[in-house]
């Protein structure tokens, strides 16, 4: 049987959904929306484009079967993405608790997500990729309809030029955005699942991410301004001004799409984490249990999106697993093949 393969577009969408999930649970209390944040996103996307180069090159070698990571290193990736999956579930449970208290206990939500994500991970990357396309369409429809029926008015005075006062906001957002770009190490691992064109997947994802999040930030700046801090979650806040005769409140639809996306993205993390385990079912069970345990621990401890250790941990993962490891792996491979040619 051929190993499962997905297209570059499917991978770009999966990476985008992973980034989107993080934007969904990005909770702010004192959000200084405006130009510094928008420029911070642009700068972070440029840096990510550079950091993507070794990952895309490594993925290209993976497609040709010329690259494989040593098992201990591969396990580091598994641990990293298990922590990310747990963090995602914990922050999603926090969102449920804040915005829909009484709907489902957060602890139960974490266990349910882990169960559903574990099953999806067991179903494999092809199934996740197909489901990803559906979730992407659902999200696009929700986003566009919320914008279309928004009762808010654009206040262009909110779009101010960047000044020295905006530098702390710019650098804070740049740091947070870069620490959320673990889609780069994901590309390293998912390269072997691609049919072709890893660069297309990488830069397609970056373009999609930049367009969607920059549009969101622009709308927040023009319409919601500082009120976004009252509502807490920027994407969710977009629905605050949206109202139509047909749909009075967008909250339940938001909740539905977010719950599905959280499950799908957690499934993706568990799927790539469990790959070193030979039995797919065992791998899914072990890593979904680990992710749930971490999520429960962090939820009880009160994990915050902007907790410094979490941001630093994520950023180190992006730099080491997304850039340094693939560069080293390719250098070692080159050295070995050069030595092999000499010996021959």
């Amino acid at each position: 049987m051929n190993p499962p393969k997905i297209s570059a577009a499917q991978l770009a969408i999966l990476l985008f959904l992973a980034r989107l999930m993080h934007t969904m649970i990005f909770r702010v209390t004192d959000f200084d929306s405006g130009t510094p944040i928008m420029l911070g996103l642009a700068a972070s996307t440029l840096i990510e484009a550079l950091l993507m180069i070794p990952a895309a090159a490594y993925a290209s070698k993976s497609i040709r079967g010329e690259a494989a990571l040593p098992k201990p290193v591969r396990l580091l990736y598994s641990l990293y993405f298990t922590v990310i999956a747990g963090g995602t579930a914990a922050l999603f449970a926090e969102f449920l608790h804040r915005e829909f208290s009484g709907t489902v206990p957060p602890t139960a939500a974490i266990i349910l997500i882990a169960l559903a994500a574990g099953y999806c991970a067991y179903a494999g990357i092809e199934g996740i990729a197909r489901a990803g396309a559906v979730v992407f369409i659902l999200f696009a429809a929700l986003f566009l309809s919320m914008v279309a029926v928004s009762e808010g008015k654009f206040n262009w005075l909110n779009l101010r030029p960047m000044t020295r006062d905006g530098l702390p906001h710019f650098s804070k957002y740049l740091f947070e955005s870069l620490s959320s770009s673990w889609q780069i190490p994901m590309l390293v691992l998912l390269g072997s699942k691609l049919r072709r064109n890893p660069a297309g997947a990488a830069y397609g994802f970056l373009a999609l991410k930049f367009l969607a999040i920059e549009t969101l930030l622009l709308l927040i700046t023009l319409v919601l301004w500082r009120y976004v801090g009252v509502l807490g979650y920027p994407i969710y806040a977009l629905g605050a001004f949206a109202k139509s005769d047909f749909i009075q409140r967008f909250d339940p639809i938001n909740m539905l799409v977010w719950a599905i996306n959280c499950t799908l993205v957690s499934a993706l993390y568990i799927c790539i984490s469990s790959e070193p385990v030979k039995s797919r079912s065992k791998g899914a069970v072990i890593f979904s249990a680990l992710a749930a345990a971490f999520a429960l621990y962090e939820y009880k401890r009160g994990l915050r999106y902007d907790e410094t250790w979490f941001l630093v941990f994520k950023l180190l993962g992006v730099l080491i697993l997304g850039t340094v490891v693939p560069l080293c792996a390719m250098a070692i491979n080159k050295f070995k093949s050069g030595k092999g040619a000499l010996t021959a």
Partner: peptide, 15 residues
């Protein structure tokens, strides 16, 4: 089990 339990996440199913 996962499907039915996940349904509780949908708004209003419990409250």
């Amino acid at each position: 089990a996962a499907f039915f339990l996940l349904a509780f996440l949908l708004s209003g199913c419990k409250g």
